[in-house]
């Protein structure tokens, strides 16, 4: 709650120090030639009122779930967001799952092969994932797999000739499966795979490093020796006993890594023409559309808070010693 208020104040303060005049930015040449248009524009968006009034009007609207009206699309930001969120959600969730599967697996292997060659190779791969600019990786991936090899389709969520599946969740892959449209599902996956992989690279590295250190710490514990003394196979020891105990720190990072995904989507969505909130926020930033940016920031902050609430609940589920407060 505090965070939301903080974001709204912060975002609002930003608008007050904008040297660029949004009216000029959005009306273009008309602004200089047509003063009435500027006045009407300002009245329409409440820009003529004193700043504190603007803020309280804004805050009041927020409480009703009203994020204001975008100065670019001339639509309610909430409606804009509703349109763009499913695309980003599909991309972000897919990349998160990929990063988690790969990162945890590599991290476990690195820990079990500590300081051997495998560990070093994994160290280079994971740090490489965290060191590669996502915009560059996206371009290289597009160049190789689309431009040269033509293995995957280029931009967008679907081929131009494929109609989106009937809207249920907005996630095309799930909607297509629900509607039994296998061809649409496959097309969605083809479009999804490359941006999702690019987006996963950074977090994969992060999860690998964290899993490795968490697993190494757990391996020191006496109960791992107990599990081995029972004659359990090493696979069971690692995946049931070690990974279970190592999961709280990993879950924490997953919560934090959400921020990385959002940073990545801004870049990746622009390059892959993915119609999500990353692209939307970029368009809004370049158009000095602060209402829209504030809307995105608020939404993202709320999701961040929700994600970390889920993390806290997961903590209590994983570790019986943690009581649910």
């Amino acid at each position: 709650m505090f965070l939301c208020l903080g974001v709204s104040v912060m975002a609002f303060v930003l608008t007050t120090v904008v040297p660029g005049d949004p009216a000029v930015a959005n009306l273009g040449d008309r602004a200089s030639s047509d003063p009435t248009a500027v006045r009407l524009y300002r009245e329409h968006f409440g820009l003529d009122k004193p700043l504190p009034v603007q803020y309280f009007v804004y805050l009041g609207n927020l409480l009703h779930g009203d994020l204001g009206e975008s100065e670019q699309s001339r639509r309610a930001v909430r409606i804009d967001l509703a349109e763009y969120i499913p695309a980003t959600a599909e991309l972000a969730i897919t990349s998160m799952v990929l990063a988690l599967l790969l990162g945890v697996t590599l991290g476990v292997i690195a820990a079990l092969r500590r300081n051997r060659l495998t560990d070093q190779v994994i160290r280079v791969v994971s740090l490489g994932g965290m060191s590669t600019p996502q915009f560059w990786l996206a371009l290289v991936a597009l160049y190789v797999f689309f431009y040269k090899l033509n293995w995957v389709p280029g931009a967008g969520r679907l081929d131009a000739i494929v109609l989106p599946p009937p809207h249920v969740t907005g996630l095309f892959s799930i909607d297509a499966l629900a509607a039994g449209q296998l061809d649409v599902f496959l097309n969605t996956v083809q479009h999804l795979i490359l941006p999702a992989c690019v987006l996963a690279a950074f977090n994969m590295g992060l999860f690998t490093r964290f899993t490795r250190s968490a697993v190494l710490e757990v391996l020191e514990n006496d109960y791992v020796r107990t599990a081995r003394a029972k004659g359990l196979p090493e696979v069971t020891v690692v995946f049931r006993h070690v990974l279970r105990a190592a999961s709280p720190p990993i879950v924490t990072v997953v919560g934090l890594a959400f921020g990385n995904v959002m940073t990545g989507t801004v870049l990746v969505e622009n390059i892959f023409s993915w119609p999500g909130i990353g692209q939307y926020s970029y368009r809004s930033a370049t158009g000095l559309d602060l209402t829209a940016i504030v809307g995105v920031m608020l939404f993202v902050a709320i999701v961040y808070i929700l994600v970390n609430m889920v993390v806290d609940i997961l903590y209590a589920v994983i570790d019986p010693r943690v009581g649910l407060a």
Binding site: L3, G6, M10, V18, T263, V266, A285, L290, I293, A301
Partner: peptide, 19 residues
């Protein structure tokens, strides 16, 4: 608060505000 908002979004807002 800074952690809750993705770095690039905040940076974009700042740049959008300052030019």
């Amino acid at each position: 608060f800074v952690f809750a908002v993705p770095t690039i979004l905040l940076a974009m807002a700042v740049v959008a505000a300052l030019g």
